[in-house]
Deep mutational scan, measured.
Amino acid sequence: YFQGQLNAMAHQIQEMFPQVPYHLVLQDLQLTRSVEITTDNILEGRI
């Protein structure tokens, strides 16, 4: 994955969860590489 793709995914998640800091979303995406998994992590309070 290149950074631009991760940034696009992070923006997509931020639209759904504007209360979660962008850098935390991006940090999780770098591990998961998945909008779905990061979204689940937010919903389950891991982020």
Rank of each mutant, 00 (worst) to 15 (best):
Y1T: 12
Y1C: 14
F2H: 12
Q3A: 10
Q3S: 07
G4R: 13
G4D: 14
Q5G: 09
Q5D: 14
Q5K: 10
Q5W: 15
Q5A: 11
Q5T: 11
L6P: 02
N7E: 15
N7V: 14
A8D: 10
A8S: 09
A8V: 10
A8N: 09
M9N: 03
M9L: 11
M9Y: 10
A10T: 04
A10S: 04
H11K: 14
H11V: 10
H11S: 10
Q12V: 12
Q12N: 08
Q12K: 13
Q12P: 01
I13C: 03
I13D: 01
E15S: 13
E15V: 12
M16D: 05
M16L: 11
M16Y: 07
M16K: 12
M16T: 07
F17V: 01
P18F: 03
Q19T: 10
Q19D: 11
Q19S: 11
V20K: 00
P21W: 06
P21Q: 06
Y22R: 07
Y22H: 06
Y22K: 06
Y22Q: 05
Y22N: 04
H23D: 10
L24S: 05
L24I: 09
V25K: 00
V25T: 03
V25W: 01
L26S: 02
Q27M: 12
Q27S: 10
Q27D: 07
D28Q: 03
D28V: 06
L29D: 00
L29F: 03
L29C: 03
Q30A: 11
L31V: 12
T32A: 02
R33H: 13
R33S: 07
R33T: 06
S34V: 03
S34K: 03
S34H: 03
V35Q: 06
V35W: 09
E36K: 13
E36P: 07
E36A: 12
I37C: 08
I37Q: 11
I37S: 07
I37M: 12
T38Y: 00
T39Q: 07
T39G: 04
T39E: 04
D40R: 15
D40E: 14
D40I: 15
N41A: 03
N41I: 02
N41Y: 03
N41S: 04
I42H: 00
I42G: 00
I42A: 02
L43T: 07
E44Q: 15
E44C: 12
E44K: 15
R46D: 02
R46I: 06
R46G: 03
I47H: 02
I47L: 14
I47P: 02
